[in-house]
Amino acid sequence: MTRPVRIGVQIQPQHAEYAEIRRAVAAAEEAGVDVVFNWDHFFPLYGERDGEHFECWTMLGAWAEATSRVEIGALVTCNSYRNPELLADMARTVDHISGGRLILGIGAGWFERDYDEYGYDFGTAGSRLADLEQALPRIEKRWSALNPAPLRDIPVLIGGGGEKKTLRYTARHADIWHGFGDLGTVVRKSAILDEWCRTEGRDPSEVERSVGVEGDPGTKGQPLLDAGVTLFTIGLGGPSYDLARLTDWLAWRDEVNAARG
C-alpha cells in the first residue's frame, strides 16, 4: 500500500490564551496541513510549571466546529482519565460535529502530576498498559452500539514504543502507530510492529507510521519516508505558535506526493 505523505501539527495547549490557540489552528488549516493535534494533559509539560493550560477533549469539540477540512485529534489521549465507554461516546460525538474528521489518538499515560492532582491512581507502567489493553476492545464495542453510529470507522492512533505490549496492542487495534525516538529507533520498532501484525493476522501495511519531526525535511524527511513513515507532525508551543516552521515540510510533502503520482 502506497500512502500519501501527510503533515500534521501539534498545537500544544499550553502557555497561551485560547484565542491564540484557535488562531493557530485556523492558520494551520489555511496553510494546508492534513491533521491538527493537541495533547491530553492538565498542566504544561515544559516551561512555567503552572503556566496557562487547557483541557484536551472540550477543545477538540470546539476545533470540530472551527475547522472544515483538517482531521483533528489528540496526540495522545491518556486512557486513564476517562471510562472507555465515555471516551468512545465523546469520540463519536466529536466525529459527528466534525463531519467525520476525528482521529482517536490514545496511549497508556505517563505524566504523574496529572494523576496526582486530578485524583487518578498512577499505578505502574504495567497496570496502565493493562488498562489500555482492556479499554481498546471496550471502545470498539461501544462504537458498534451507539445510536447514531460514528460517521466512519474512526481511525485509532496508538502512541508508544513498548515492544512486548504497546506494539502488540497497536497491531491488534490501531490504524496509525506514532513512534518516538531517532531514526534507528523508529526503524527497529516499526519492524517489531510488522512482526506483531503478522502474529495478529494483519497486513503490516494496514498500520500507518507516524513520528514527530523538526528541522529540515530535506535531511530529516527522506530517511524516515524510506523507513515507511508517512505522517510527519511538527510540534508548536505557545504563545507564539510559529507556523513558519511548517512551510518547508508542506512543500516537501507536495513534492514527494507529486513524484509518487
Rank of each mutant, 00 (worst) to 15 (best):
T77V: 12
M90N: 14
G126Q: 13
N83W: 03
W110S: 06
G105K: 02
I72D: 02
D89N: 15
D95H: 13
I106N: 06
I106W: 08
A130E: 03
G107A: 10
L129Y: 04
A88G: 04
G126Y: 11
G73P: 02
E71T: 13
N79F: 11
E71V: 14
A88M: 07
C78G: 13
G99I: 05
R128N: 08
V94Q: 00
R128T: 06
R92F: 06
A108V: 12
F111C: 08
V70P: 10
A108G: 02
A125T: 11
T124H: 13
D89Q: 15
G73W: 07
I103G: 01
I72C: 07
L104N: 03
E85I: 09
E71H: 14
L75S: 12
G126D: 11
S80M: 09
D116Q: 15
W110Q: 09
L75C: 13
E71P: 10
L129V: 03
D95E: 11
A125F: 14
Y81G: 05
G126S: 09
S98T: 09
G109K: 00
A91Q: 02
A108Q: 03
R113Q: 09
V94G: 00
R101N: 03
I72K: 03
V70Y: 14
G109Q: 03
G100V: 06
A130S: 07
E112M: 11
V70H: 12
I72L: 09
L87G: 02
L102C: 10
L86Y: 09
A130I: 12
G73M: 08
A74I: 07
G107T: 10
P84K: 02
F122Q: 08
D114A: 07
R69W: 15
L102N: 04
W110P: 01
L87K: 08
G105V: 03
D89Y: 15
D116W: 12
R92Q: 10
L87A: 04
G126V: 07
C78P: 01
R92N: 13
Y118M: 12
R82P: 04
T124D: 12
G109R: 00
Y115W: 10
M90Y: 08
E71R: 11
V94W: 00
D114E: 05
G99P: 05
R113H: 12
E112N: 10
L75D: 09
A91S: 04
G100Q: 03
G107V: 05
G123A: 14
D114M: 13
R128A: 05
I97D: 15
Y120L: 03
H96G: 06
A130N: 07
